[in-house]
């Protein structure tokens, strides 16, 4: 049996407001996978990511990252994870290089080691010339790339991308996917959430669809695409990609 990068069992989360965000989610992501977690807004994707990264306290269930429980072995589990959040969350007054190097520091990487690697990451992501500019002066797409560089500074084995291409233009999105595919070829496991389903369809080996806090379908991309119902799709009128139509079959309220 192959190693799991992420193993979630019966995960539940009820917020203080009473909102039941996750209702017993179970998920396995094999090491080295490019995995898509899809769902409409408010389905529970970001809550899952929050629990895995330690920003949201779970109500019940268990989560392991490369076999390490995120609560009992939090320090070890977190060394494996790099996260690119949905919202821009770096200090806008810090220089780009400092945003990345300081993040390395929080993982115990000395500046003498972090600085050359951070420079390499900024170069790989096409923002090397912004090295000494503050974060707030960057365009939306550059901010997203800075978030990716920050997430990679400690060479994580498991990269979580929460809608990383929201608001990013087509050309830049393609560049980002090309870069991320090189990471998976080096063995990095990627968990992606996105509303651009055609991208998920092209990039990901496995997919799970979450709706109202529960997984409604999961499997290989072929398994999910096999759920496609041509009649239902035709009745909708507008035709999208195959994954998009399956997604609507499973999650549409109309």
């Amino acid at each position: 049996m192959s190693e799991s990068a992420l193993s979630i069992k019966n995960l539940k989360k009820t917020y203080a407001s009473g909102t039941e965000a996750l209702r017993g989610v179970s998920l396995e992501i094999p090491a080295g996978d490019f995995f898509a977690l899809l769902g409409p807004n408010g389905a529970g994707k970001t809550t899952i990511i929050g629990v895995v990264t330690g920003l949201v306290n779970k109500t019940a269930g268990s989560v392991e990252v490369f076999g390490h429980d995120i609560e009992r072995e939090a320090e070890t589990a977190r060394t494996y994870i790099g996260v690119v959040p949905q919202e821009i969350n770096f200090n806008p007054f810090e220089k780009c290089i400092d945003v990345v190097v300081n993040q390395g520091g929080y993982y115990g990487i000395p500046r003498s080691v972090a600085i050359p690697y951070a420079e390499q990451l900024l170069k790989d992501l096409g923002i090397a010339d912004k090295r000494n500019q503050t974060g707030w002066s960057l365009s939306g797409g550059m901010k997203r790339r800075l978030l990716i560089a920050r997430a990679l500074i400690h060479k994580p084995r498991f990269l979580i991308l929460d809608e990383p291409t929201a608001g990013v233009d087509v050309e830049l999105r393609r560049e980002m996917w090309t870069y991320l595919k090189t990471l998976t070829s080096k063995g990095v496991t990627i968990l992606l959430t996105t509303h651009y389903l055609e991208e998920a369809e092209q990039l990901c080996k496995h997919v799970a669809i979450i709706h109202k806090g529960a997984i409604v379908a999961s499997g290989t991309m072929q398994d999910i695409l096999a759920l496609h119902d041509e009649d239902t799709a035709q009745k909708r009128g507008y035709r999208g990609g195959k994954l998009e139509e399956v997604f609507l079959q499973l999650t549409s309220e109309k």
Partner: peptide
Amino acid sequence: QAKFFARNIDEILVSPTP
């Protein structure tokens, strides 16, 4: 400020820093 405005406190909270 790190918690409320930029939310960059998450940089430390997601890290293994105890």
